[in-house]
């Protein structure tokens, strides 16, 4: 007889071990697909692993040693957030841990006192405040449908959440663009190629620190796509298909739309959260008795 805490623990450990592999692969496929969309051959699918491996081979170079602390904290709390999520923990707690980890990245960028990192940090913060309300609405919406904030309960509810929360789902996809650092919302830093603020938040990180940031991104991918899974938790097959389609859409948007200014990012994210999110939740709230199981 396997008890629930044991399953949670196993899930968390599996996440910690496997998420970087999955995340790295996703990043690799992302780059390959992007290249194909641009009519290029593109790097090998395993390229992200080569990159990170390379970064760990490089010299340890910093502006201040405190950078090490912030980057390590960023990675650790990203893992904590993800592990909590996959062990079926409380959605809100996961979101707060997730925010915490990002704040560490921002602080790391501030610590170096370089103009590029600084603007990157400010923009990263703007991104955080742009997506946070929508992510909270996502959790609240799931609660309204399943009566629980617990990820395990949400998955096991067997309710087709997507049918109740279509607006929230679209809103989530839009903030997902911000989170995946995809154009048009790749304000603070973008994954490949450089932009007008050099590399934004990551400008002053190099070597193993940059490698850790990259790994944290992999964990983040898996977590973010895990949330997409929740919407379709009633059927794993559909869920996986939805994740693939959603991610493909993100890549398509990335390659077809140019970067916007932070003002537009903030406004559009809030507008989406404020309309799609709230309206969807509001409808759900007042029709509780009518359409809810």
């Amino acid at each position: 007889m396997i008890t629930e805490p044991v399953i949670s623990l196993v899930n968390a450990v599996l996440f910690i071990l496997l998420a970087p592999l999955a995340g790295g692969l996703i990043a690799g496929i992302d780059r390959k697909v992007t290249a194909r969309m641009q009519g290029r051959v593109g790097p090998p699918v395993l390229q992200p692993f080569y990159d990170v491996g390379k970064l760990f081979e490089k010299e340890n170079m910093v502006v201040t040693v405190t950078q090490h602390f912030y980057v390590l904290s960023y990675l650790v709390f990203m893992i904590v957030a993800g592990a909590l999520f996959f062990s079926g923990g409380d959605m809100l707690l996961v979101i707060f841990a997730f925010t915490l980890s990002h704040i560490f990245l921002v602080l790391g960028a501030y610590a170096s006192y370089s103009p590029y990192s600084h603007i990157g940090a400010e923009r990263e913060l703007i991104q955080i405040i742009a997506y946070e309300p929508m992510i909270i609405f996502t959790a609240v919406g799931m609660y309204m449908v399943t009566q629980s904030f617990n990820v395990s309960a949400i998955v096991n509810s067997g309710i087709p959440i997507i049918l109740y929360l279509p607006g929230v789902f679209i809103g989530y996809l839009i903030v997902l663009t911000i989170k995946l650092r995809k154009s048009p919302f790749d304000l603070s830093t973008s994954h490949h190629a450089h932009q007008e603020i050099v590399k934004g938040v990551t400008t002053d990180f190099s070597g193993s620190n940059l490698g850790k940031i990259e790994i944290a991104h992999w964990y983040e991918y898996v977590f973010l796509l895990g949330v997409v899974y929740l919407f379709f938790g009633f059927s794993p097959v559909i869920a996986v298909a939805a994740i693939i389609i959603a991610y493909f859409l993100e890549i398509l948007i990335d390659n077809t739309i140019s970067r916007v200014k932070w003002q537009l990012t903030l406004r559009s994210a809030w507008l989406i959260a404020g309309t799609l999110g709230i309206v969807n939740l509001g409808v759900l709230y007042y029709l509780k008795g009518v359409i809810m199981p």
């Binding site: 925010t99 704040i103 921002v106 602080l107 501030y110 170096s112 400010e122 913060l125």
Partner: peptide, 16 residues
């Protein structure tokens, strides 16, 4: 989150 973080960022930036 925004106003605290940017303040925090200010005090922890290292100017040697």
């Amino acid at each position: 989150v925004f106003y605290w973080s940017k303040w925090m960022g200010k005090i922890i930036s290292v100017m040697r």
